[in-house]
Design a protein around this nucleic acid. Structure first.
Length: 735
DNA sequence: GAGCCTCGAGTTCC
DNA sequence: CTCGAGGCTC
């Protein structure tokens, strides 16, 4: 790469705004790259003179097109990297979430389950630590050799954002710990008291700054400040209650762990208690509920944790929640409002979802105006009618849901809701509800314009191609203007810059016109859009699209939007088949086989490729059939072919592992004692083995634990080698 | 065949 | 976050 990349030779005076915008973008990227190389890696890629030329070119264009100056413009900073967002950090141990209980008997059942799992007698006590559940933000603090080195938000539980600098400004977070293990991660909740929250909002308002909706939002906003000096002025507090990675055990019970935390200088919640009987826990819960309003911080329930850590270890976790803890939530705040209308939305798979339009009402601190009604059964069962007064709450304090109808307030003549027979799309396609299924689907499939837009939106969405700037509104816009009809068209957009710019400009004009109409004539001048804005966003969009011309196979598969193939299954398929060509070939073959034997009820009766697909663990005939259906549609084959012309799809490198199981197909059966099935599977895959769910003649190895049944017999039948867990561990070289 | 678990698909508001 | 459904185990 040359240093000149990003700079063109066109004299500044002859640049069109569009060219200028895209060049500024390229320059920003290029200069940032050199800054990083120079300042962070101490390894400049180009000479100082070349670097200066880039900066001068940037400054000249900015001088000629002041409207196009970018937020991330190199002229806004002097060398040092800009503070654009926070670095992502992966947690050494995932930050788990908690299962919820809403009623007393669910808590009783929780304890019973713990007893059953551990094989304890009825009369054996299960001591529980009870603590209020603080309504704040979970964070993780990493200490190495007693020094605070890294603080991160919870994020999705696996990885969060590095907010170390901001956390260092909190008084409640010690900078150093005495007599701490070499590595210690302390977890807890950052929160703001109600009093501090009110004071902060008063000063925000006085300064004409943003006012926060509630203490939690204020705490979150304060912690995500780019400038730690701002965070320092915010009254954030911290309660510690758990741990992540820890290099040596420091306690044998939850309760003593909390004591250790206090010795290190952390604050733990003063209302925490230790009980041996569930009844005491429930009494403490009711006591807490009664005191809730008087506390100076928001809480949303009580958390119960099994006290003994050896039991916690044995209980382990399911999915992302531990079996040894549960959150007993307070009843969610409810509100009544009128249901004005029921709209039908069409999802990308054609599912028709009824959505309630509500007269806006405040529930739990936010204004709610829409709520999902899920499906026909839900509406019928609750007998929800347009015009009804309904009770609304926010499930888990987030998603609004319609709980029930206040029948007494039903207006006369309100008719029962009739699920429509046709899709709301212009084609008015007939809809069907399959026997035994809850969903009603539009049969328009590929032709339905609503579904087409949804599929395109899915294609560009975060977990698929992740194209910034191509959200639902833009997709709709480009679709309506025939600029994008199928996924590959996205990558051809930049061959029609004028048309794209025109469409976007027109949209902006309509938007501001609508805004003006809504606001009256109060802001005639302010609503006028700066010249050049739309050019800028178009340039950004093209760059964002170009960024995705290389794409990992798993994302590619997911983006196609095959029914039942979500993120997890896409990853699995990518890993098993390795390359786009291999996968495509196999799927086409399977589809052909299936077309020949549409009535077969067992994979083997269909064909080899189909059976191999079904043999992948967690893929059964239902999923295989949906994949085959996708590949038997010539339109879909064309969509993929068109994409191939635009993209590089990165396969999964064949595992070049020298391990004894590389390339082998392994089946696990029966109970495993030293590791979970998930761990075993992950280990096998890491070592290059394929993990399958059933034994066939293609299986190389069966790992059988106690209680193995039919698969063991299958192994004998096919003459497959069988080993136990210890044998497996020996084979792959321990843990 | 029941029960557990995971995944997919749909949704809200900031 | 919730619901429904598919797949796996026993």
């Amino acid at each position: 790469m040359t240093g000149k990349e990003g700079a063109s030779d066109i004299p500044v005076g002859e640049l069109t705004p569009l060219e200028a915008a895209s060049e500024l973008q390229a320059l920003a990227k290029e200069i940032a790259r050199h800054d990083k190389a120079y300042y962070q890696k101490d390894a400049p890629l180009i000479s100082d003179a070349e670097y200066d030329a880039l900066r001068r070119r940037n400054d000249a264009i900015e001088a000629a097109f002041p409207n196009l100056v970018r937020k991330d413009s190199p002229s806004h900073r002097l060398g040092a990297a800009p503070a654009t967002g926070f670095a992502k950090v992966t947690h050494a141990r995932p930050m788990l979430s908690l299962n919820n209980a809403f009623a007393d008997d669910e808590v009783v059942e929780f304890v019973a389950r713990v007893r059953r799992f551990l094989g304890l007698a009825e009369d054996q006590a299960v001591a529980l630590v009870c603590e209020p559940k603080i309504d704040g933000l979970s964070i993780s603090l990493r200490y190495e050799r007693g020094k605070f080195v890294l603080g991160a938000t919870r994020g999705d539980g696996t990885s969060g954002e590095d907010v170390t600098a901001n956390l260092k400004t909190l008084n409640d977070i010690p900078e150093t710990l005495k007599r701490a293990p070499k590595v210690l991660e302390v977890r807890g909740e950052v929160y703001m008291t109600r009093k501090d929250f009110a004071a902060l909002n008063r000063s925000q308002q006085a300064a004409g700054e943003k006012v926060f909706a509630n203490p939690r939002n204020a705490a979150a906003g304060s912690l995500r400040q780019k400038n730690p000096l701002v965070t320092a002025t915010r009254p954030l507090r911290f309660f510690a209650y758990a741990w992540g990675e820890i290099s040596e055990p420091v306690a044998d019970t939850q309760w003593r762990f909390l004591e250790r935390l206090r010795h290190w200088g952390f604050l733990t919640n003063p209302l925490g208690k230790l009980f041996e009987r569930v009844e005491d826990c429930l009494a403490a819960y009711r006591d807490l509920e009664a005191r809730r309003a008087k506390l100076d911080y928001d809480i949303d329930g009580m958390v119960y944790k099994v006290n003994r850590l050896d039991w916690q270890r044995r209980l382990g976790q399911v999915s992302r929640a531990p079996r040894w803890a549960i959150a007993h939530k307070f009843a969610a705040e409810k509100a009544m409002t009128r249901l004005a209308a029921i709209e039908l939305q069409v999802g990308r798979t054609g599912t028709l979802t009824p959505v309630a339009h509500l007269e806006p009402v405040t529930v739990g601190g936010v204004v709610v105006s829409r709520a999902t009604l899920h499906n026909e059964d839900y509406v019928v069962e609750k007998d929800i009618r347009v015009g009804d007064t309904v009770v609304v709450q926010r499930a888990g304090d987030v998603i609004p849901q319609v709980l029930e109808v206040v029948k007494k307030k039903r207006p006369k003549g309100a008719a029962p809701f009739r699920f429509p027979k046709t899709c709301p799309c212009p084609l008015k396609t007939r809809v069907v509800r399959k026997e035994g299924e809850a969903a009603t689907r539009c049969t328009g499939e590929l032709a339905c314009p609503y579904q087409q837009v949804e599929r395109l939106f899915h294609f560009a969405s975060r977990d698929a191609f992740d194209i910034e700037g191509l959200g639902e509104a833009n997709i709709q816009l480009f679709f309506d203007n025939s600029l994008i009809k199928q996924p590959a068209d996205i990558f051809k957009l930049k061959t029609k810059p004028q048309e794209v710019t025109k469409v976007v400009a027109e949209w902006h004009r309509l938007q501001s016109a609508a805004r003006q109409a809504a606001k009256g004539r109060s802001e005639t001048a302010g609503a006028k859009r700066k010249k050049g804005e739309e050019y800028k966003s178009v340039g950004n969009l093209f760059a964002a699209i170009d960024d995705r011309r290389r794409i990992p196979l798993n994302r590619f598969i997911y983006a196609l939007g095959i029914r039942q193939v979500g993120e997890a299954t896409a990853r699995l398929l990518a890993r098993v088949y390795g390359t786009l060509d291999a996968w495509q070939g196999a799927m086409k073959a399977a589809a052909k086989e299936r077309a020949k034997y549409p009535d077969a009820t067992r994979p083997n009766e269909v064909g080899e490729a189909y059976a191999e697909l079904c043999n992948v663990e967690s893929i059964g005939m239902s999923m295989a059939d949906d994949i085959c259906r996708f590949f038997s549609e010539s339109h879909n084959i064309k969509v993929i072919r068109a994409l191939e012309a635009e993209l590089t799809v990165e396969g999964f490198a064949a595992p070049v592992s020298s391990s004894a199981v590389a390339g082998k197909t392994v089946v696990f059966t029966g109970a495993l004692e030293q590791m979970t099935r998930e761990e075993a599977k992950a280990m096998a895959e890491r070592l290059g083995a394929k993990v399958s769910g059933s034994v066939s003649k293609k299986t190389d190895l069966v790992v059988a634990g106690p209680g193995a049944g039919s698969k063991l017999k299958d192994a004998e039948k096919h003459g497959v080698r069988v080993i136990d867990e210890a044998g497996w561990l020996a084979l792959v070289g321990g843990r």
